[in-house]
Nucleic acid binder design. Structure first.
Length: 491
DNA sequence: AGCACA
């Protein structure tokens, strides 16, 4: 008696229904397999597969109630359990009377993906990490996260079904790289299917939903309230206010860290708008400006504490800057404005691309093989140069207005210990460098090929989330693989 | 192994 008090919902049989609930199904059990199991008892008129957090449940609807009863009755007294692919399937009457929304397999292509996270709780996977992961396949329009019976889930909206399908194919069944997750999370497997949605309605930018197509969308109070946005971190320390500008301090500088190396590293997470480097306390620091806070948050989370070069050299420490928009007056080896539309501004400074790919010059497919942009990226962002922002939907604001907060940034706090003297100071000398500086920036390297390194060893490959799937100009030169063979750290 | 996408 006492043992039955806890879960009365499993103690009594459900009243009969022509819909049966099946569980303990094999992975990605198909509509056809369900029909094969059930058809000896009657006509199956509808199914719904891949139900539940593990997508291992299903519903089967018979044409007639008596057919469902005959199946349940048979297996209730059978010595052989119901099986699919040799796996025992448990079945019972569903508590609903009909299957809704059956698409015969649930695999109808859509531009919106339903993502189920296995092994994590809500909040373990930030919306910024999701944005990073899925942006590898194209422009992510919107993300909405929620909790259901299946656990923590997200809807991710792309421009079109092809892009969504590519993301699903690449990521379904895989895991989010460990370093993108909080320390206490062991792993996070992804289960991805197509959603029936075509356009998500996101009313606020918040910690659970984001609309990347609408920078004017109001920010939910829950997302800007200090008690939540700047809540305690995992270590119990108060988080600093987030910013689209990161302050990087580089420890153990055994090798030179150039502005191009920094640009390559941080560009893996999104468009880097500006970089300014400066000496501080006998060490090198840099301000890296992204177009939006979310990208900076993701980059900080992924890169904090990592070393640019194998062996613990050039270790990065990242903090949020108080700045939101750096003023870069010239492009040189210490400062760079990658958004400056003035072509002359670029003419005489090193680029991570070869000269044949400077603005206004079409890159030749036959000569850019070292320029590692995935085919998916090219397809979704046609003609995009590495320093341009992603293409925006028609009718949106001008790129220069995207992701900008509607307020002007505060004046530099000269008395602050974290603010460099970049604004209006002569350390960023005006005027372009002489044309031959393109060679001096890469000693021993040809400047007319894609990005290659000088003396320093190759960068730590763990900076490349999901390896080749990400757009990155961060290509180690040939023959410079690290001792570990360059295997990604997350594998 | 326990009911479907907010």
């Amino acid at each position: 008696m006492s043992s039955s008090a806890g879960q009365p919902q499993f103690r009594y049989a459900h009243p009969p229904s022509k819909v049966l609930h099946l569980r303990n199904l094999p992975w990605e059990c198909t509509h056809e397999e369900l029909v094969e199991l059930c058809k000896p008892f009657g006509k199956v008129v509808n199914t719904k597969c891949n139900v539940g957090a593990n997508r291992n449940q299903a519903f089967v609807e018979f044409e007639d109630l008596n057919q469902a009863i005959s199946m349940v009755s048979y297996y209730a007294s059978s010595s052989e359990p119901a099986q699919i692919r040799g796996k025992t399937v448990y079945l019972q009457y569903s508590n609903r009377q009909e299957v809704v929304n059956n698409k015969s397999s649930g695999d109808v292509a859509s531009n919106v993906l339903l993502v189920t996270f296995e092994g994590v709780e809500a909040g373990d996977v930030s919306i910024d990490v999701l944005h990073l992961v899925f942006s590898a396949f194209g422009f992510v329009h919107k993300i909405a996260t929620f909790e259901k019976t299946a656990g923590f889930q997200a809807l991710v909206q792309f421009s079109d079904a092809d892009t969504a399908a590519a993301a699903r194919t690449a990521l379904d069944g895989r895991s989010i790289p460990r370093y993108l997750l909080p320390d206490h999370v062991g792993s996070c497997h992804l289960h991805i299917s197509f959603s029936a949605h075509v356009d998500l309605t996101v009313k606020f930018q918040s910690h659970r939903s984001r609309d990347y197509t609408n920078p004017l969308l109001p920010v939910a109070a829950s997302a800007i309230d200090c008690s939540s946005q700047f809540a305690l971190g995992p270590d119990g320390k108060k988080k600093e206010p987030e910013s689209n500008v990161l302050l990087a301090s580089i420890e153990n500088m055994q090798y030179e860290v150039t502005i191009d190396v920094l640009h390559a590293i941080f560009s893996a997470f999104g468009t880097v708008e500006k970089i300014a480097m400066f000496e501080k306390n006998a060490g090198l620091q840099a301000l890296i400006q992204f177009s939006d806070v979310a990208t900076a948050v993701t980059a900080k989370g992924a890169l904090e504490g990592h070393c640019i070069y194998e062996g613990g050299f050039c270790k990065l420490h990242l903090a949020y800057s108080r700045h939101t928009d750096l003023i870069v007056k010239a492009n040189n080896d210490r400062s760079r404005d990658y958004t400056n539309p003035n072509p002359g501004f670029y003419q005489s400074q090193p680029s991570v691309l070869g000269p044949q790919q400077l603005p206004g010059v079409q890159p030749s497919p036959s000569t850019d093989s070292n320029f590692s942009v995935s085919a998916q990226r090219i397809g979704s962002l046609p003609q995009q140069q590495s320093w341009e922002r992603p293409s925006l939907p028609q009718g949106g604001p001008a790129p220069s207005a995207m992701y900008r907060p509607p307020y002007s940034h505060p004046e530099p706090m000269v008395s602050s210990g974290t603010v460099p003297p970049y604004q209006g100071f002569p350390s960023y000398s005006p005027g372009p460098l002489p044309a031959d500086s393109i060679h001096s920036a890469f000693p021993g390297q040809r400047a007319d090929t894609s990005y290659q390194y000088g003396q320093p060893p190759p960068p730590n490959p763990s900076f490349q989330p999901f390896g080749h799937q990400y757009q990155s100009t961060y290509v180690p030169g040939p023959g410079t693989l690290p001792p570990n063979g360059g295997s990604p750290a997350y594998m």
